[in-house]
Design a protein around this nucleic acid. Structure first.
Lengths: 172, 172
DNA sequence: GAAGACATACTCGGATATAATGTGTCCGAGTGCCCACGG
DNA sequence: CCGTGGGCACTCGGACACATTATATCCGAGTATGTCTTC
């Protein structure tokens, strides 16, 4: 029951990318500098987000990353699942069948009650994450964050964002 | 976001111990055999449950483990926290402070919005686990489980449980 | 002077080492039972 | 025959290796830019 710290970096980067205008991009190196992280390592997580269609990457000079869709359509659950994987945290190993008494498979047609309870809790966890959109995070930060911090963030984004030519000319 | 498989073993063992009568105990070796697990490794998890006052251990011959309190007062959250630790899964590293722009500590008095959202989700997770008592697991199994499996479990418990002398003569 | 081709510099992407955690195992400390011995 | 002391077997508890995952890093593939040559 421990999330990798890459999740924190991924959410922060996504929130930062939500502040870039239009179809501009921001290099991974700039994002890494923004949070004092290893550029090479952050690329790994950004790559995962790209693989899950949360970010888009533009190669070449003046390239970088940007959100693949509006921040209103990106939830924290999307990011967490992209980094940590979609499989549930509790994996039932069906150890109830490994006892000395071997029963027919028909005795285990019903789902293990423990598994059901754990999955129910995890559904609540995911539901709570799903109802928090990335735009909410940004809006809350803009509303209640410290003015100095907001100014510094905006200046950093304005300095490192790179405008692009073709807007949504993204083929699959 | 991945729970150790020891959680599953711990819950199954606790549910089994809920079926022993009175103050009788059950050796860890029997529990391990009941689920086809390594006896030495299961002891590690049972020891954690004992440290968290969920189980009680009786040394010596005819010793073993038993619940430290009625199954109605043991929740899945208690067991999960005992195995996985009480600290939250998402640990905010405060990377927002590690940027190139160094701000005064007064700029970060408010909790990080990302951290707040993640902790809120985790509270929902824990709340769902807390409302499931160990007695519910046992009752559901007794009610809807396969009769053959129930009979086998009862027989196994009856064969391996060891009655004790002093009932609740347990000092802290 | 304008157009095309080439070299270049910057970007992301995947393959590769290292540290931490979880998993699995082993041996030692402690306790109650059983038996032998003595009264 | 009964009480007592000691040996023993069984239990849990903590300390010790191994495997897997997460962390961190490096090098290679790809592309738009800028420049040079040529028409």
């Amino acid at each position: 029951m421990k999330l990798g710290e890459g999740v924190e970096a991924a959410i922060h980067c996504a929130a930062t990318l939500a502040s870039v205008e239009g179809n501009s991009t921001m290099p991974g190196a700039a994002l890494a500098e923004s949070f004092g992280l290893s550029p090479s390592y952050l690329l790994k997580h950004l790559n995962m987000l790209t693989a899950e269609r949360i970010l888009e990457s533009v190669p070449g000079p003046a390239g970088g990353y940007r959100l693949a869709r509006p921040a209103e359509r990106i939830t924290l659950l999307d990011i967490v699942l992209a980094i940590e994987g979609r499989e549930p945290a509790f994996r039932c190993g069906e150890i109830r069948r490994n006892g000395p008494v071997k029963l027919d498979a028909s005795a285990y047609v019903k789902l293990c009650g423990i598994n059901a309870a754990m999955l129910k809790a995890e559904r609540a966890y995911r539901a709570a994450l799903a109802e928090t959109r990335l735009s909410d995070i940004v809006a809350d930060y803009q509303a209640e964050g410290d003015p100095r911090s907001i100014a510094a963030s905006c200046a950093f984004v304005a300095r490192h964002q790179r405008p692009q030519k073709s807007a949504s000319t993204k083929q699959v």
